[in-house]
Design a protein around this nucleic acid. Structure first.
Lengths: 194, 194
DNA sequence: CGCATACGAATGAACGTTCGTTTGCAAATA
DNA sequence: TATTTGCAAACGAACGTTCATTCGTATGCG
């Protein structure tokens, strides 16, 4: 029974460490020897736990895509007003960016290094997410809750606006996570307001 | 007199092409052989015009840092209200992102691949720019033109909010450059408004 | 003019290094 | 004993870069 030894499996440790390295140096600039050293192994030993460098990236990308899609699912099922839906999704983006910085990096930057069957699949998931988010924004505009504006401009501005959190926010620094969340949500919601 | 034969020198062509490749695939994932092929040369021939891969990156980073710093200089010299200063700088970021996408990539992403004497120098320039931008935001808050909020949250949200333009905007598509600029400026300025 | 010289530009071959990955075997764990 | 884990060594491929050489053209000089 090779289930659990300590808290998490070594495979999980490798994945998390890789995610951090990919965020700090980028996927291409992170070598398997870098990764091995960071988890106190030799490069060859990694392959007892994972099957390729790209598999690691693939897992990171799809896990996080799934996280955002689940959040979308949840938001859609509650019957909220468009502003409340956006607020909820925005909170998801912000807290995710702060407590697991890699998600944002994967979602925004590193996915392009996927190879072809995976690349197209990931892009499809991303397109699906964007489309559902855009629907909410357009609904809010038609209901008069949001200012009339190009939905794509609003969509991508929202996505991008949380991109800095992952390399700027440090818990315990000047602002708490809750304060940052509140500030950013207010900024964006006011930008959307009719 | 080896001045001009056609429009631009081959060195300039190499730099521009490299900037495009760095934006599309990232610095590390772009090989000198990729670059050579893109300018219709062999890899070895590149070195008749440039001295290293990193020199290209260095030029891109510092040229664009200088562009933003010049814009800052200009905005500071006119005696404008804080909102008008921000509007002006925001316009600079937006138009730059649309007409020369690489600037934003360099300014936001690729600089971290610089090597050490250059890396520190670049970070210093960047810190200077951010500090002057932050001063404007804080002034606007004290003057009551902007809502009171954490200046860093405002600052980085503004920077990030234009990051999507470079891989989304295509002239001639649904929106013109002027429309995009107007929409984004309005979004951000309303988010700042008291 | 005719010819030597200099030089910018391009190249194929090769350098040393690093890349991701595979293999065979030993140690640890079950 | 059977399975998992780790490692040294090695693999071919790709990396950034150097080098000697070549070709074409422009200049200097008789």
């Amino acid at each position: 029974m090779p289930k659990m030894k300590k808290k998490t499996s070594k495979k999980a440790l490798i994945q998390e460490t890789a995610a951090r390295l990919f965020r700090d140096k980028g996927y291409s600039a992170t070598s398997m020897r870098d990764l091995a050293e960071a988890v106190d192994l030799k490069a060859s030993s990694l392959y007892n736990h994972i099957s390729s460098k790209e598999e690691i990236l693939k897992n990171i990308c799809f896990e996080n895509a799934q996280r955002f899609l689940s959040g979308m699912e949840e938001v859609e099922q509650q019957s909220l007003s468009a502003p409340d839906q956006v607020r909820e999704l925005l909170r998801l983006h912000i807290t995710t960016a702060m407590e697991d910085a890699t998600s944002v990096t994967a979602f925004n930057d590193e996915w392009r290094h996927l190879n072809e069957p995976d690349l197209s699949e990931f892009k499809a998931l991303r397109r699906d997410y964007e489309q559902r988010f855009r629907k909410i924004l357009e609904g809010g505009m038609q209901a008069g809750a949001f200012r009339r504006m190009d939905a794509n401009v609003a969509l991508y501005t929202i996505f991008s606006s949380v991109r800095w959190l992952y390399d700027w926010f440090q818990p315990g620094k000047a602002l708490t996570a809750e304060q940052v969340e509140q500030e950013v949500v207010e900024f964006i919601m006011q930008g959307l307001k009719a």
